[in-house]
Design a protein around this nucleic acid. Structure first.
Length: 518
RNA sequence: CGGGGCGUGGCUCAAUGGUAGAGCGCUCGCUUGGGGUGCGAGAGGUUCCGGGUUCAAUUCCCGGCGCCCCGACCA
């Protein structure tokens, strides 16, 4: 961060964060942005109001898209009987190592200590859902009898628990918030269309709302969701060059309908197992947002996800000035609100304007309006942007000046929406540029090693025809893996065509996306 | 579950075998106000828990618990 523990360290206007100790930088941004913190509960996260407000905006955008594609929301239980989980073998073994298990339903005081009452032991343990396929499909059995009941397009907003060993705020915590879609279809074709459609929804959301460019593709066998026939993903690149899986969409075939025995009668009167999909994104997306856009001064939010898009700060010396600038600030706020802008007037007293600037910048607010006595005289407003697009070689001081503009009042107010729009687009362009600068088409192991060990790494487009043990070798030697096998249209022109596998030299039809990852 | 580190005001951390201190934050007053004003006053700690050594332990020793980092696992 530019400033720590209250010491003045001068201006650090670097747009990309320190390369070193990226993990620490990430935590600093979360702290500075008042997004979240560790809870005393092992591995769990407390999401602060500002962080939660961002999640709410994400929810709304996603939910609109789910509804527009015909989905409805529902809610299923938090607890899953152990026997349900084990109905799909691969699914059960995939999640077995990270399940919270409930064995008792009552406590008892023994020698002043409260312990589970041995007499309340459950006949069958319950697990806290790590995902809801099994319990949802147990219910779908009652909902589906005929082809007329299909397709069944349901989404659930919920929390799930995966008892991970190591946790990182937003990226991996024992409990996290997400949405999970679970759909049932009469044919494989229709189910597959759904799988592709929802991945498209995620990609559109990531790029147009989060301003994070993503690569769509298929996961390799080893990386598939436990119990899925096919897993698709969107992969983003963080500012340290590592990939982050931002969303997945699974084709489950008839695995879960068979496990839960969900059959339907088709038009010919035949009984058939239903075809299933599931898809989800989580609060991890907030981590992606931070690691894609933020800088050393703190959080940067794309306007479409900013809970506060414009903060107005009245500036004054005397009580008289305070009254007048505050009144003007409220008026401007009302006018902006009428245009649909999320505005906040910071009327707190006894805090210097500069201190307020730092605070709101840390929280990622895209635009700041400063209203002082001079503006009242001139009928002008000062608008400051959270960031401006970089100019190579520009001094930090010059960049800071370029962030502020003084405009006549009416003009300033009219400029807010277009400016927010422009900032949304600039963030996306900036992220794309950063990704391009860290992306290589690579054909030899020597170049590969150089890229990941000397040049900081990033995305590597390489030909691949290896086995899963070959993948393990790439993981061991370079700490890299296949993020996904991108759809053809996701591959840049210079990386298209056939070739030979980077590791084995065997013929390869197309390149895959290799990188380090979170 | 293996290897390493750390537990001291709200936060970041000093110090010490003789009963605890700084910076920031917080409260109050004045001052200041277009990029973290300055000064003064004040609140706030059973030094993680338990045991041992000692006249005396926050400090040394042992045990526990918790947290962090590195590995195996992962949205």
């Amino acid at each position: 961060m530019g400033k720590q523990d209250g010491q003045k360290t001068g201006e650090t206007a670097a747009v990309t964060p320190r390369a070193k100790d990226y993990a620490q930088w990430y935590l600093d941004v979360i702290k500075q942005g008042l997004l979240a913190e560790h809870s005393p509960v092992r591995g769990c996260m407390v999401i602060r109001p500002h962080g939660y407000a961002i999640w709410e905006k994400m929810q709304r955008e996603l939910d609109d898209r789910f509804k527009a594609t015909g989905h409805e929301n529902a809610y299923f239980p938090l607890f899953i009987p152990l026997s349900f989980l084990t109905k799909e073998e691969k699914h059960a073994s995939g999640f077995a190592k990270e399940c919270a298990v409930i064995t008792h339903h009552r406590l008892k005081s023994v020698n002043g200590e409260v312990v589970p009452d041995p007499e309340s032991k459950l006949d069958e343990p319950l697990i806290v859902r790590p995902t809801s396929e099994t319990i949802i499909w147990a219910q779908y059995k009652n909902w589906i009898q005929s082809y007329r009941d299909l397709p069944l397009l349901i989404n659930q907003w919920a929390n799930v628990v995966r008892w991970e060993m190591r946790t990182r705020l937003f990226l991996r915590t024992a409990e996290f918030l997400w949405q999970e879609g679970h759909t049932a279809h009469a044919t494989e074709k229709e189910a597959l269309e759904e799988v592709w459609r929802m991945l498209g929804v995620y990609a559109d959301f990531a790029e147009t709302v989060m301003a994070v460019p993503v690569v769509k593709g298929r996961k390799t066998e080893g990386e598939r969701f436990a119990g899925a026939i096919e897993t698709l993903s969107i992969e983003g690149m963080m500012q340290d060059g590592k990939a982050l899986q931002m969303g997945t969409s699974h084709y489950l075939g008839q695995n879960f309908s068979k496990g839960a025995d969900v059959k339907f009668q088709n038009k010919d009167g035949q009984l058939e197992y239903v075809y299933a999909t599931s898809w989800g994104v989580s609060t991890r997306l907030i981590g992606a947002l931070i690691m894609t856009h933020s800088d050393d001064a703190g959080l940067i939010l794309p306007p479409k996800l900013a809970p506060v898009q414009v903060v107005i700060i009245p500036i004054y010396k005397s009580d008289d000035e305070r009254g007048r600038t505050t009144e003007e600030a409220r008026k401007v706020a009302a006018e902006l609100k009428a245009k649909g802008v999320a505005v906040k007037v910071d009327e707190r007293e006894g805090i210097m304007p500069g201190a307020k600037y730092y605070e709101w910048e840390g929280k990622g607010v895209p635009l700041r309006v400063e209203i002082g006595p001079k503006d009242l005289e001139k009928g002008s407003l000062c608008i400051a942007r959270r960031f401006v697009s970089e100019i190579a070689g520009e001094a930090p001081e010059a960049q800071r000046k370029r962030r502020k503009t003084f405009l006549p009042r009416a003009e300033a107010i009219d400029s807010v929406l277009p400016t927010l729009d422009a900032m949304q687009k600039e963030l996306f362009e900036r992220a794309k540029k950063l990704r391009a600068a860290r992306t290589r088409v690579i054909d030899t192991l020597e170049d590969y090693e150089k890229f990941f060990k000397d040049e900081g790494g990033g995305f590597a487009w390489v030909h691949w025809a290896g086995t899963s043990s070959d993948e393990d070798e790439m993981a061991k030697r370079f700490e890299t893996g296949i993020r996904n096998i991108p759809f053809e249209d996701q591959i840049p022109p210079e990386a298209r065509g056939e070739g030979r596998c980077l590791l084995t030299g065997k013929p390869s039809k197309q390149r895959v996306l290799m990188s380090k990852s979170y």
